[in-house]
Design a protein around this nucleic acid. Sequence first.
RNA 1: GGGCGAGUAGCUCAGUUGGUUAGAGCGCCUGCCUUACACGCAGGAUGUCGGGGGUUCGAGUCCCUCCUCGCCCACCA
Length: 925
Amino acid sequence: MSTTQELRELPTQYEPGQIERAIYQRWVEAGIFAAEEKRSRRNGGDREPFVIVMPPPNVTAVLHMGHGLNNTVQDVLVRWRRMVGDEALWVPGTDHAGIATQNIVEKQLAAEGKSRSDLGREAFVERTIAFVEETGGEILRQLRAIGASADWNRTAYTLSPELSRAVREAFVQLYERGLIYRGHRVIHWCPRCLTSLSDEEAPHGEEAGKLYHISYPIVGVKDDASLTVATTRPETMLGDVALAVHPGDERYKKLVGKSVILPIANVEIPIIADEYVDPAFGTGVVKITPAHDPNDFEVGMRHKLPMPVIMAPDGTMANGTDAGSRVPPQLVGVDRFEARERIVKSLEKSGRLIKVEPHQHAIRHCYRCDTVVEPRLSDQWFVKMEPLAKPALAAVRDGTIRILPERWEAVYVNWLENIRDWNISRQLWWGHRIPVWYCDKCDKQIVSRTDVTACDKCGGAVRQDEDVLDTWFSSWLFPISTLGWPDKSSAALAAFYPTDDLITAPEILFFWVSRMIMAGYAFMDAPPFHTVYLHGTVRDTDHVKMSKSLGNGIDPLDVVEKYGADALRYTVIAGMGMGADLMLDHRDLERSFAPGRNFATKLWNIGRFLLANVGLSPVRSVDELRDDELTLADRWILGRLNATILEVDVALGSARPEKGKWRPEERYSGMRLSEYAEAARRFIWNDVADWYLETTKGRIGAGGGDSEVARAVLTRVFDHALRLLHPIMPFITETLWQRLPFAVATDRGEFLAIAPWPIPHPLSAEERDAMARFDLVREAVGAVRQIRSDYAIPPGKSVDAAIQSRANSAVFAQHSALIGQLARSTVKVDGSPSGAGAAHSVLSDGSEVIVPLEGLVDLSRECGKLRGELEQLEKQLQSLSKRLQNEGFIGRAPATVIESERKKEAEWTKRREQLAEKVKMLCGG
RNA sequence: GGGCGAGUAGCUCAGUUGGUUAGAGCGCCUGCCUUACACGCAGGAUGUCGGGGGUUCGAGUCCCUCCUCGCCCACCA
């Protein structure tokens, strides 16, 4: 074998940077990531389709560890199924991210001293498009660096003409089905983003606030009788239209129907009774501000109250609709929080502020900019959710769709059971404009799939609704729109819908996952996928979520550059249990990614060993080897390989439910990626490298028939190990696999990436037997090694070990040379050990391994040490026993202490016996 | 306020239907540059499995209770 030349191909040090880019390029050029409709069984092909649609990152996003984790999981699954033989498709794409992108561009404008209104809508949108074209989609290029095997030909974008068409179609269809309506009600309004938000976009945050008690003078009652109201938001009192009490509240019963004067605004408002009021909270009197509180709005509707708006969209005080002059001039234009302070001060001055108490309460914030949202009365478009939720709920309940980890199913069900209508209009400029036109002349409202230029009723001029749709209104269509919907004759839709898995983080279970399921049923009458896998969050060592803005982030590309994509991928997959968070140290990348880097290096070195020893000339096929040619080690490692394939298959589980629905026993199994990674690692490192490879060292160099057997088995084992590992570590496995010698040229496919996934067979009794016998050999080796270590016998010094076998003489006799080789000793079986003074160790089958130590260690010193130890132990044991016989101790000490002392006594007794035996062996008598 | 999850070695976590001596990676200790690998090899230490109670021949695993963290949801002003 001309080893030097081939060795040059595998440098001693693994340099991922030098191989990864080139390999990725070759995969792309070979088209192995591209899925074909006609190969899908659903389109008359012979392959089962396996499809994952990528959660589209924001178009302006830059790759972070969260993306790295999310996409690695998807890639592992896609690569696995590709090797199994499925027509595997991974659809990539990006999201235009309405508010997020608009905020970025507005920030840029602000830096130039401009606002979006300075530019005007058209120019602003132009600018945003230019910005996206320039910087957008970078993240998809970055995904290639971590090895993502997506079908880039199908890259989608939520604002593309194709997907925009789907958005319009969905809107119009839902409108025609009566599921989209225009509503006049209180919604969440972000005064900074200047748009309405859905319930999901305005999450609660606990905050320490204050509860202000304010007295409202009652009209027409003698003296200065008043009603005291408790409120957290005094500034909204200017919008009060009533005070409400509970109808059954005796304290206030006689006041219902009277009225009070609203301080500051000086408006007379009625006292009403409504069930909504909780008599036990605060004073039992609630101020009703219908335009700025969703509950008050309901009360206002019931009592047909006016609904004055007392704030401008930007959160400053203003006399809006129906407000008259409630907001006094000195407060107009003042920010709501500043206005609160001023109003409180003014109330204090006039004696209307009774008291202020601290109050813990939950306030909604904008999920994009964290500004406290303002409930605000306005007109918005809503989707009626209950009818859509029904099939989505049933799908998870009946096992058509499973959610992993299991506990999220309950969260999902709870949300859908209490679903509320979805506000889909946003007062933004970046997004899909709402496809509704209004006629100025006859007031007709036209909802249309195509642009409208004139009123179809009176021919009058029309103007399109100013608002755009919630970003999620395009995302929820992603699984169908990326495959061609609404074109129902789309070959992609037929071949690949429904898809298989959806991999994402729990944060967007409501935003996206549940809505996709609803859209799947609403528009395709079929679920978009059968498995939802919710993975954890990447956090730092303090368990704080990683983020660029907090400065605790890790740039995946840094990791790729330093240790390679495979190291990143392995670390992430192996380190993350089902649904568990992944902790990484951003201050110590080397330590964080050591598991992956070390394992990659290990693989590399196994590869180098193969190259140097097995070489490149064809090996014999393992399938054609006769049983009697195989050594015990060969049979053992082939058995371990088979067992590992089984383990990996169990960890990954079924790729899809058998008959449309998950059976209970398989519903929550599989998708254990960390267990899959661990099984593969254990096999390669602890079995192949630590044991099998060592057994081949004497054999391969010897030449002859056995040498060929060893070459064949080692090659087969490593070949299949690389296949098992490829989905997790695609680059290094591909590199090494390309250099394996195969039995026949045709065994070498073009790429490992499309090489067949190993198929296990049921373990035979012979295999089991071989594995048990080799385990005995390993035990014997371990025994000698331990003795050598215990007595600090230098590695260079040979020892003569003897095995006194009870039941397996033949096994030990046959493999004494191997045991000797692995334990760096000579081994005699059933002979008497030569020399006095010996250490011994008992194996699980009762056999004894005896190592004479004369001449190797200073026996008198060792014996002295051991005798001293034994003496000491006996002394301690004596005093302990004495204590345990002492009635005073037994009578008074707590039972737990007595118990633990008894336990200790038993342990020490056992140790004494062992030590005595050791002394007898080593020192005689 | 409602619901859910977690607490196992210094750290991050596995522990499948309760079953011998509770595991892995990283870290730590000892000895080794043994001709694939010091990003390695060999050997080793470390756990009242959150506390308490219960069921059982047997509990990390099942039940009750308490404590501590975390997550999701929620119109008490």
